[in-house]
Design a protein around this nucleic acid. Structure first.
Length: 288
DNA sequence: ATGGTAGGATACCTA
């Protein structure tokens, strides 16, 4: 084949890619960000939303009641806002550029639980995807009542996760799990041995949920890494500068969601922002 | 072995 014909074929392919394939490949970018106080972090949040351009975001630790959430700043930029706030601590929210249906607040299984740590919605893109944004209890100090609450909360999460799988929908459960799954998910795992984030019961409980049939997509994308990547660096003792991090923000995908994965990642550069959160965003892009 | 930081409450707690 002549050089001219080869060059022509390259261009035809290039044009076909643009005209045919790009428009028919839908994409839904789903992100999670533990914002550590949304009112203190509204600048970083809006800057990141602009730069990363997700379609739907779950937030944790908004640390505000619904009525004090900076709703207008986000609605003015085209976001639909659904909050499940709490005074002072915890609090989760969903921001979406796509329509949301069937929003549900609170993790089922304990009507006496007053902590705002769970919000669900169905996102209507090219397909309907059920998302659950979660802020799993920290559990320290362990042992103690807070650790008991963490483990009990994880049992309720396991029950809800099993229901999701029965639905056979694409489901993404994402957020701050407050669990370091394996030694390689901490820069210095030996420092975490007595911490609720790394105790055997916490890790086993998360593992049991994953073994129901969930795909932990950031693990899958980093199978060869001996250490890291991380999603959290403490504010103290120069943890960021030393890359003394842990990976505790996770995305669990049902089989129907895992089949749609285009890409997944961690917006690590957000930890270097002005007055940053101690967590960075994590995301998955689905053909949905 | 300790303390280092941060947000949002309120005169400390949670992380």
């Amino acid at each position: 084949m002549s050089k001219i014909r080869r060059t022509g074929a390259v261009w035809v392919n290039f044009i076909c890619l643009f005209l045919r394939f790009r428009p028919i490949l839908p994409s839904m970018k789903i992100a999670s960000f533990n914002i550590n106080g949304v009112r203190a972090r509204i600048q970083q949040l809006t800057d990141w939303l602009e730069a990363s351009a997700p379609d739907v975001v779950v937030l944790q630790e908004i640390k505000t009641q619904d009525e004090s959430f900076p709703r207008e700043e986000l609605e003015d930029r085209g976001w639909t806002v659904e909050t499940f706030g709490q005074k002072g601590f915890n609090g989760v929210a969903i921001l979406s550029k796509l329509p949301l249906e069937d929003i549900s607040r609170g993790l089922p299984g304990d009507d006496s639980d007053e902590q705002s740590r769970w919000i669900e919605a169905t996102v209507i893109g090219d397909r309907a995807v059920r998302i659950a944004g979660l802020y799993l209890p920290n559990g320290n100090p362990a042992p103690g009542p807070k650790y008991d609450y963490k483990l009990a909360w994880m049992e309720r999460l396991a029950a809800r996760a099993a229901e999701f799988l029965k639905s056979e929908m694409p489901v993404v459960m994402l957020g701050d799990y407050n669990v370091i799954p394996q030694p390689r998910d901490a820069a210095f795992p030996e420092k975490w041995l007595t911490d609720a984030l790394f105790l055997p019961e916490s890790r086993a409980s998360l593992r049991r949920i994953e073994y129901q049939g969930w795909t932990e997509i950031l693990r899958l994308r980093n199978l060869d890494a001996a250490s890291g990547p991380f999603t959290f660096w403490d504010y103290q003792a120069g943890a960021w500068e030393k890359n003394n991090g842990i990976r505790i923000d996770h995305l669990l995908l049902s089989p129907q969601a895992a089949d749609l994965v285009i890409d997944a990642g961690i917006d690590r550069d957000q930890r270097a922002a002005e007055k940053p959160s101690d967590h960075v965003p994590v995301w998955v892009d689905l053909a949905a």
